[in-house]
Amino acid sequence: MIEMKHISKTYTRKGVETEALHQVNLKVNEGDIYGVIGYSGAGKSTLIRMINFLEKPTSGQVFINGIDLGSYSTSQLRDARKNIGMIFQHFNLLNSKTIFQNVAIPLVLSKVNKTQIKDRVLELLDFVGLADKAESYPNELSGGQKQRIGIARALASNPSVLLCDEATSALDPQTTDSILNLLKKINEEYNITILIITHEMSIIQKVCNRVAVMENGEIIEEGNVLDVFGSPQQTSTKKFVQTVIHDEIPASVKNKIKDVPNSRLFKVPFDQNDTNPIVNDLIRTFNITVNIVFASINEIKDDTIGYLVLQLIGEKDLLEKAAGYLSHPEIGAKELAK
């Protein structure tokens, strides 16, 4: 669907070169909700603008449905852009035009006839739940409503890809959720591939199926959202994951358990498909005391990810045997320092 190959982008300003992107490879499959996360300055905005060629790469290629964007003439590129909708952090609606006129603009540009425009715009306004606002102006709407209009406008030309450039960064958490739900609905009902740029891990957590982590113009980690959240590899990725998944034992809990004699701590991943009765086994087989000191379960899109922290209390050799049981790959527990 979307494929970036060895993309680099260098800006030269007053003789000073800055590399915004360095050898970026990215593949987004049809039907994906693909999230790209990074701190500001990581190159995410440049990256998303490569996909509709608002920014042209210094080297490398961008393929949309197998066709190299760089091979297009200016007018072919304009047509290609009509197949790629885009929404923005600050909505970029025309304040001088009504909501109806705003949503109609892409169709007016394509010289669609008036009755068709009317039908399509009303259908879209209905889809985003703002049918009653057709004759209002953008400054009469809330941020969330403006973004809904932005989405309706981006969908007007029936694109197969929707690019979201920090689309919820200017919105409060509740409004963000409603916009994310709308994006999910678009993905499911219209089968539109969505690429989201964000600095908030919670957005990736709620809607994305794949994620890429960017740092200093490079993609440092990429994969299935569940895998990346489950076992982040890079320091930055871990930091992002920690913003939504609390995988550290709170200090108050740590204080209470640190002085218990003959005890060891284990972090046991929680898997909803796992049928091993771990706690039961520990107590019955090893004859030790099991104390659940902390647990965390998080929903990642349509899945869950979590773990338990168990304090095992008992005789030394029994604890050793229990540790052996817990380290079994099927369980995958890790011992924690007290």
Binding site: N52, L54, L77, R78, D79, A80, R81, K82, I84, G85, M86, F88, H90, N92, L94, I105, P106, L109, S157, L163
Partner: peptide
């Protein structure tokens, strides 16, 4: 941003 939106629509 308005110009960018226009460009993204293929204007």
């Amino acid at each position: 941003g308005i110009i960018e939106a226009a460009e993204s629509m293929g204007a």
